[in-house]
Design a binder for these strands. Sequence first.
DNA 1: CCTACGATCTAATCTTCGTAAGAAAAAGGA
DNA 2: TCCTTTTTCTTACGAAGATTAGATCGTAGG
Lengths: 216, 216
Amino acid sequence: MHSEPDVAASRPVARRGRESETSKSALTRERILNAAAIVLNRNGYAGTRLSDIAAIAELQAPAIYYHFASRDELIQEVVQVGLRRTMNHVRKSLDALGPGARPMERILTAVGAHLEIVLRESEFAAAAIRNAAQLPPAIRDVQLLDQRRYGALWRTLVTEGIAEGEVSGDLDPWAARMLVIGALNWAPEWWREERGTLEDIVHTARLLVRQGLSPG
Amino acid sequence: MHSEPDVAASRPVARRGRESETSKSALTRERILNAAAIVLNRNGYAGTRLSDIAAIAELQAPAIYYHFASRDELIQEVVQVGLRRTMNHVRKSLDALGPGARPMERILTAVGAHLEIVLRESEFAAAAIRNAAQLPPAIRDVQLLDQRRYGALWRTLVTEGIAEGEVSGDLDPWAARMLVIGALNWAPEWWREERGTLEDIVHTARLLVRQGLSPG
DNA sequence: CCTACGATCTAATCTTCGTAAGAAAAAGGA
DNA sequence: TCCTTTTTCTTACGAAGATTAGATCGTAGG
């Protein structure tokens, strides 16, 4: 996650290589980014107005241009952060399992991690996932690489499951994977904290996926 | 925008209650509606421009106003048609089963029907489903009734399944239902005809759902 | 204090879009 | 042919929104 597109030239504030710049008013940058994630999540790509972002970030719209070269660059960064956080969270959860874990256990871990980040951890993740299809080509192309990476992660999980006989070979692996991920990705559309704890959802999702994928 | 004091007055063509006006140039109206579904599906609510719709429908943007009172009314109709077609198609498929069908068979039928309409039958259905969350309140409120109806249909299916012991009681019925519907609703994001027949997807989805919902 | 710079604001520009109003064209009687 | 009704186009306005330019404010360093 160190390579950034070469937009640096057009940005007033030069890219300082450090990550997580805690000091300064790069905090403002963070505020804008957060606000953008919220708006993007709520209104979609075309409905994301700089004025709305500015209102949430508590500044005037033009001030955004001090931190980002353009609206699209801002949105692109939101989406990128979202996808990367998702992948990192799922990866970390899998790593925590250790190497001895069975394939199905790994799949169920990924299911839980994906739900967690999409529903609770990160507005970014939800924004990135839900708007992927509506982004303009320029942004989508940049995303594609990360998206492929994440897809590959899941493909591996399923493949190993099949290899070890814990996932049914009757299923089309591709369709099965997409359907499962789809069920998780759709969750932000309906889940509200009021209607049940996240843990309950995760529990049900795991049950569903475990039985759904298992060989008859 | 929001004020709608005298919408009817500004519309030359009076509301004729009849459905499916085959004759006349209410065909134009149909063309516009179809075009709107396509654009809405691709670009989301905020990204749906009248000029794009007009381009696809092969007329000038202002001409749309002869057939619809406003942009929002057009979109609202697309979404309404979409949801209703979905519900009708699923209902019809269920009715075709006859009264003797087991609950699980009914659920799997609904799964297939929902996928069919979302992926093949109707651009309207996909547009309605995928944009539900981003619609402005005015439109969403009108939708709510139909949406509730459709939700109730599925709730009944699951409830009967549990009652007859064909669906696991360990699952949170609400979460399980939403996860299943979510998996289906997400399908338009990834499915392309090139990558496999619709029948294959339906087959995998049914397998997944049947095993997923069955009691351990 | 004063100065320089980082950060943000205000005001202005340019574009895109929804929408209004009326003209034109097509279709059809009388 | 002329009038009427239906249907579509043309032109124009006005609002919204992204972006730019220049002014302003606060603060750290001299």
